[in-house]
């Protein structure tokens, strides 16, 4: 009975993966093995599907992590200034050391994302504890301010085109083999969060409970910040901003199966991957053969779900 959500989401996910491999601008026959089909599959469809799975799963898990760090359900990795800070770091490297290799850029983006997340956590700690809704507002404002700085620097340095791909709604149409592999690192970071699931679950019970159980909440905080920052930085840099996945999916999973993170993180990951895949598929078929970016679709789906979460009756029953 415990495994049911996982089995169910696994089944749905498999169907979505098959559909994702089959749908696109080029029409191919999934059963065939002619060179053209293989080329499309291996160079475009498979990388794209993998990129979607990794991004969706990693963002949703990062959402669980940041929600337990700030003990607030209304935040996600995309509403904490993390992605914008990553873009700022990347922009700084691009301006200061244009020839830096890719791994240096990634480290810079991740470090900047970490600084942004730390700033968010510092602000949250100063907010009146009872005002649950102020936390997401602070995060959104912080995102706006950092995003404004990025846009301005990019404007002045004539790099706006370059920056736009990170800050605009994310899309996967440009994903081909060789251009998405960094997302595996994001996936690994999410896996790390799963290994530490109990620690995050205890942390969200409060500092006192954590101390009472002999757990250093600072250490867990740091680990969580690393996970959230690395995931956000790599996603923003590779495919752009993907809104709402990290916010909506953990909420829905918690509503169904609670916050025993060791059990729920795999379901959260599958749910994030599934939602992203479904939205991307929708974007591919709605205006075939053109594509609508998955970020746009998610902006609509995610904000409707978020509004529902805001106004639903409390779960007391």
């Amino acid at each position: 009975m415990k495994a049911r959500p996982l089995v169910l989401s696994g089944l749905v996910l498999s169907a979505l993966i098959l559909a994702s491999l089959g749908v696109g601008a080029a029409s191919i026959d999934l059963g065939g093995s002619d060179p053209w089909t293989m080329l499309v599959l291996m160079q475009s469809r498979l990388p794209r599907t993998l990129a979607l799975l990794l991004t969706g799963a990693a963002l949703a898990v990062a959402g669980v992590v940041i929600q337990s760090l700030v003990r607030n359900r209304f935040v996600g990795p995309d509403t904490a200034g993390t992605g914008e800070s990553a873009a700022l770091g990347l922009l700084a490297v691009t301006l200061l050391a244009p020839a830096a290799p890719i791994w240096v850029r990634m480290i810079a983006a991740s470090l900047a994302a970490m600084a942004g997340t730390a700033l968010f956590l510092a602000i949250v700690r100063r907010l009146p504890a009872r005002e649950v809704m102020l936390v997401p507002i602070a995060g959104l404002i912080l995102s706006g301010i950092v995003g404004g700085v990025v846009t301005w620097i990019a404007w002045e340095a004539d790099l706006l085109q370059f920056v736009a791909t990170w800050l605009m709604s994310g899309e996967f149409s440009g994903v081909i083999a060789g251009r998405y592999e960094l997302l595996w690192v994001a996936g690994l970071a999410a896996l790390l969060a799963w290994f530490a699931a109990d620690r995050f679950a205890i942390l969200s019970l409060g500092d006192e409970v954590a101390t009472g159980l002999g757990l250093s909440s600072r250490g867990v905080m740091r680990l969580g910040m690393v996970v959230v920052s690395v995931v956000s930085a790599l996603v923003v840099v590779t495919v752009g901003m993907i809104p709402f996945i990290g916010l909506v999916v953990p909420n829905i999973v918690a509503r169904i199966m609670g916050d025993n993170l060791r059990a729920s993180i795999p379901v959260v990951a599958a749910g994030g991957a599934g939602l992203l895949l479904a939205c991307d598929l929708l974007g591919r078929v709605l205006r075939h053969p053109y594509e609508i970016p998955v970020g746009t679709i998610l902006g609509i789906v995610g904000s409707v779900v978020f509004l529902w979460l805001l106004y639903r009756p409390a779960s007391h029953g």
């Binding site: 809704m133 709604s169 970016p293 902006g299």
Partner: peptide, 23 residues
């Protein structure tokens, strides 16, 4: 606070819908 959050999210919804329609 809830009203502000609603407004911000409505803003995101409207912007996404605009982009969607335009696309």
């Amino acid at each position: 606070p809830r009203t502000i959050l609603t407004g911000v999210i409505l803003g995101v919804l409207f912007r996404s819908l605009s982009t969607f329609l335009a696309r």
